[in-house]
Design a protein around this nucleic acid. Structure first.
Lengths: 219, 219
DNA sequence: GTCTATAGAAGGATAGAC
DNA sequence: GTCTATCCTTCTATAGAC
């Protein structure tokens, strides 16, 4: 039951260094023609799925002809890659900022949960869902590029969870806890609605309360 | 934060009546030509996705020609529907049996978690993953038929969770708890491996321990 | 940066023989 | 229950004009 990794101490990476690294990555300007194309693509890939969205669908949704798409992207796969890349960079930046602003370990944990819920159910929700649920449609060589970014994001989660386990705030194997949470949080896109009487912050609190051992009462 | 439904008492349906109802539903004989077709379809739909699996792929995987598929199914969608239908019926039967064999409320909760993990990671794993992750590829009229079966399955979960909330074993809104668990458990198919040193029963215990309030020590 | 026109490939489904 | 042959549609991607 005990993973061989559980004895190794996992450290939270330097937030300053990561912040600098993420700031240096470039993403498509959302106001440009290419940027509007990406937002529309994220929307269509989310509601219909990547396979069932044709370049004709995408073109007509932004008001151009299908051939014009290929001025911006070499092929359809590249559109998917760009959606995923820009989304993960954007949300990793948010997480780094939120962790920097958190005073305690429990606050960091809550910040991670809240950020992930926000990324999945907020303005980047459609793109995040594409990242999670259309993963297998990305060709392998393009997967590896995105995986490097995902590793950075995951290292933040694992750093905080591991420390929380050492402090007795969480119980169990950090990798297992993270994966259970990944599933629970990403699945919220299928049922959670912001106008349903439960705010993202409240939902985040409920998730935190469900998993921590000795909940510290909050103001 | 409080849902208007939380005041209504949700009861666990009669297991005897449901058992009889489920026994009456007919499913395809796995040993028949059609049954082998369904198993192969579940496999291919799982690894490649429904859209990227062609009827030619499926035909050659079972060793027949593509035209022969349409002797068994009117169209490709019907294959997907049959995979989903038979899987949910099969697993609902297992859950009913497991609940009947559980002595305490905590045992029932553990049984539900273990059954769902088993259905997702055991012999019906590929078909269950198709049910969860290829849902949107099922045409709407066919969705409603499967949804009726899913409602039965979900009523078992909600009955037990609601009672557990009343007893103080779980904390929070039953619908929210169920949905968080749905995500956490279905996501295990992306990372859990039976040969990784953690059995399904152990994983189920870890999930239970993570969510219950006053864990009762177990033999 | 967008248009028109179209090449070229692949997929779902049918018909009738065996 | 499976085969062969094939129709028809849909889709990605290219080429070259504006």
């Amino acid at each position: 039951m005990e993973s061989p990794m559980s004895s190794k101490v996992i450290e939270l990476p330097s937030l300053e260094a990561l912040g600098t690294r993420l700031a240096a990555m470039d993403t498509v300007d959302p106001a440009s023609a290419k940027g509007r194309l990406l937002q529309t693509a994220a929307h269509l890939f989310h509601v219909r799925g990547f396979d069932r969205t044709t370049v004709r669908d995408l073109a007509s949704a932004v008001g151009i002809q299908s051939g014009s798409i290929f001025h911006h992207f070499k092929n359809k796969d590249e559109i998917l890659e760009a959606v995923m890349h820009d989304t993960i960079v954007f949300n990793t930046r948010l997480v780094i900022d939120a962790l920097r602003a958190s005073a305690s370990l429990q606050d960091q944990l809550l910040a991670l949960i809240r950020c992930e819920l926000e990324s999945i159910n907020g303005v980047t929700g459609e793109a995040m869902n594409v990242l999670v649920f259309e993963w297998r449609n990305l060709p392998e060589d393009k997967q590896s590029r995105i995986l490097k970014l995902r590793d950075i994001y995951e290292s933040l989660w694992l750093g905080v969870i591991s420390e929380a386990c050492r402090e007795g705030l969480l119980r169990g194997e950090p990798f297992v806890i993270r994966r259970l949470l990944t599933g629970a949080l990403s699945w919220t896109s299928t049922w959670y609605r912001k106008d349903g009487g439960l705010s993202v912050a409240q939902l985040a609190e409920q998730v935190l309360q469900m998993v921590i051992c000795q909940p510290v009462p909050r103001a």
